[in-house]
Design a protein around this nucleic acid. Structure first.
Length: 107
DNA sequence: CGTCTGACGATAT
DNA sequence: TATATCGCCAGAC
């Protein structure tokens, strides 16, 4: 097998974020084995084409990153709310509560 | 092959 | 809390 590309590792991690949870760019990067490369996660998602739950990835402040797309922020927020993720008055997600915990599976 | 751009994060001031 | 700076990779031209 070819060595997985950087982007493919990112996609693999994003794909396993469970519904109703969110992860930060830095967190995804770390889980993908790319610590410190939070930017690549954003770049990768911009190129993912939409075959992934990209809406579950937000920045370290629990805020949706503005992008050149225009209303992408609004779309992402609605997708998350429809999954049960609530935003506070500042339009931020309480990461302490919704942050994805990969090892938190309940056996 | 050089240059520019693009969904971030941490640190310093 | 806000602003500025650096580092990182891939794709388009």
């Amino acid at each position: 097998m070819n060595p997985p590309s950087t982007y493919q590792r990112i996609y693999a991690v994003v794909a396993r974020i469970p519904r109703g949870c969110v992860a930060t760019y830095g967190q995804v990067a770390q889980l993908a084995g790319l610590p410190g490369q939070a930017r690549l996660v954003g770049y990768a998602l911009s190129a993912c084409g939409g075959a992934l739950p990209w809406q579950r990835v937000v920045n370290a402040r629990g805020r949706i990153s503005p992008r050149g797309d225009g209303n992408g922020e609004e779309i992402q927020r609605q997708l998350l709310e429809s999954e049960g993720v609530r935003f506070d008055e500042g339009g931020r997600i309480p990461l302490a509560r919704y942050r994805w915990r990969p090892n938190d599976e309940h056996p």
